[in-house]
Amino acid sequence: MPAMDEAFWATLDAQITAQRPEAEGRMPVAPVRPAPQVPALKSPPAAMPTAPSRRLASDWTSVLDTLTAAKSAAQQQEMRLREQAAEQDALLQELKRAQQETRAFEVLLRECQTQAEAKLKDVQAQAEARVRDLRAESDAQLQALEARAQAAELRAEAAEEWLRRIEQASRDLLPAAERAAA
């Protein structure tokens, strides 16, 4: 933008210098950037015809029109920049809120994971304890059943022994002739 400002002021200086009545006999001077204020026009000499003043006034009018247009464009640009800045601020605030929500969800997720891991460990410990209890109970029942089975076998053997003895005693009670046939 500084290059545009310098070119604008240089062009404006050249136009003003060309319009001055005392500049008609001189060589054009290299443009020098004046202060940002617009110089006041001197009144034309009374001996000058009115045609150059009209031309000078119309040139100043076009310069003022240019300045007005530039000011309007600058104001519009400034308004657009303010709107963009407001939009960026709104987007930035929305981004910050989204980041805060994301952090909150991450914390909540970590808490849920921690709770889930603790619950899983608790359930696993309960399951292992229940499995141990069931194994111990089934082992005890199996041992009781094995003991009952052994006792039943012993009773069966004892019963068979008694039955053999009873059979032997009943044979011994038979007369001798019948003993030989049996």
Rank of each mutant, 00 (worst) to 15 (best):
M1H: 09
M1Q: 09
M1E: 08
M1S: 10
A3K: 14
D5E: 13
D5K: 11
W9T: 00
A10G: 09
T11H: 08
D13E: 11
A14W: 03
T17N: 08
Q19W: 02
P21T: 05
A23V: 04
G25K: 09
M27Q: 10
R33G: 02
A35H: 07
Q37D: 12
P39A: 06
P39W: 07
A40L: 12
K42G: 02
S43G: 02
P44R: 11
P45I: 04
A47T: 04
P52L: 05
R54C: 02
L56M: 07
W60P: 00
T61C: 08
L64S: 10
L67K: 04
T68W: 07
A69D: 14
A70D: 03
Q75V: 07
E78Q: 12
L81G: 03
L81F: 06
Q84V: 02
D89P: 01
A90D: 04
A90N: 00
L92C: 06
L92R: 14
L95W: 05
T102C: 07
F105K: 15
V107S: 05
V107C: 01
E111A: 13
Q113K: 12
T114A: 15
A116G: 04
E117T: 12
E117Q: 15
E117L: 13
K119P: 01
V123S: 08
A127T: 13
A127V: 10
R130T: 11
V131L: 15
L134H: 11
R135K: 13
E137Y: 08
S138A: 14
A140Q: 14
A140R: 15
L145E: 08
L145F: 05
A151E: 15
R155F: 05
A156E: 09
A156Y: 05
A159K: 09
A159H: 05
E161I: 01
W162P: 01
R165Q: 12
R165P: 01
I166L: 12
E167C: 04
E167A: 11
Q168A: 15
Q168C: 05
A169I: 07
S170V: 08
S170L: 14
R171C: 03
P175W: 06
R179V: 01
R179Q: 15
